[in-house]
Computed example of a mutant assay.
Amino acid sequence: MKFAIRSRGDQSSNGLKMKMKNYLQEFDLIWDEEEPDIVITVGGDGTLLYAFHRYKHRLDKTAFVGIHTGHLGFYADWLPEEAEKLVIELAKTPYQIAEYPLLETIIRHIDGGKEVVYLALNESTVKTVDGSLVIDVEIKGERFETFRGDGLCISTPSGSTAYNKALGGAIIHPSLESIQIAEMASINNRVFRTIGSPLILPKHHTCMLKPKEATDLKITIDHKTIVHKDVKSIQCRVANEKIRFARFRPFPFWKRVRDSFVAETWES
């Protein structure tokens, strides 16, 4: 089996990366950063996001597993002190695959040039470079509303615990193939009106965002920010591709939610 390891870059993460690399090679696993069968991330959820975008061209061939060297992560479920155990599992045990849905975002421009396609593991956001965003929201080809406000966040189920949650969006189990649209500071008064609630769309529903005027839009894809000029439309839907996680033990989603947000801290 071929493997690669991505580190957060701090001293402890880099040290653990080298230790695991040496151990895995002693078990005759092959180090291959270009075409790995499995990618191990050492750091946090941000490290896994970077690894996902590094290998998004081979999601059907590469699985991911994470060690968190900071706070508890939603993607990284192994502790640093469990690194040797993970090495043995990788070398000796067939793993199960857990697949999570992704967000596909397609940007089309007024000049009719080549469309740009992005995949997001967590979310995509849409804002203007200056001023309020004024944009028509279409669902399944029909106009739903005209949004006015700071911006929109379109998230995956696994990303529903990230920026989406801060915006008041729902937390969605990643087994549900869906996307969620959450508003950022919408303008609601006697003249302007939006739904004011997050919208959850199933896999077969497509959302189309169409700016009311030609403007530069600041679009994020997970941790990346891209400015697109003269945007005609932004199409969002559940992607055909999925991210694949290597599982050697149960990793209950609701336990992660509880431990991250509502678990009590007991004082001795």
Rank of each mutant, 00 (worst) to 15 (best):
R108D: 10
L152G: 10
V126R: 13
Y118L: 02
E99H: 03
E177N: 14
A166I: 06
E82N: 08
F144C: 12
I139K: 07
V117L: 12
G151P: 10
A120Q: 07
E81M: 04
H173W: 07
T125V: 10
T146I: 13
S124T: 15
S132K: 06
T128Q: 14
S178A: 15
L121N: 04
N122G: 00
N164V: 07
G112K: 02
L102W: 01
G141D: 05
N164E: 09
E142I: 05
T146Q: 12
E99M: 08
L133E: 00
E142A: 06
D130G: 01
P174I: 02
R148A: 03
L103N: 14
P80E: 00
T125I: 06
A166M: 04
A120P: 08
P101H: 01
I154D: 04
N122R: 01
I135A: 09
G168K: 03
R108E: 14
A120I: 06
G113M: 13
I88F: 11
L152A: 02
H173A: 13
L86G: 11
V134K: 09
L167Y: 03
Y163H: 13
E89P: 03
Y100Q: 09
L86K: 11
I106Y: 00
W78D: 06
Y95N: 14
L176K: 09
T156M: 00
I171P: 02
R143Q: 05
S175W: 00
F147S: 07
S178I: 15
E145F: 04
V87F: 13
I106S: 09
G168M: 07
T128M: 07
A91W: 01
I88C: 11
T93K: 15
P94F: 07
V134Y: 01
A98P: 05
E84K: 13
I154S: 10
K140M: 12
Q180E: 13
I107N: 06
P94C: 06
T93I: 14
A162P: 09
Y95S: 10
Q96M: 13
I179S: 00
P101Q: 05
L119T: 03
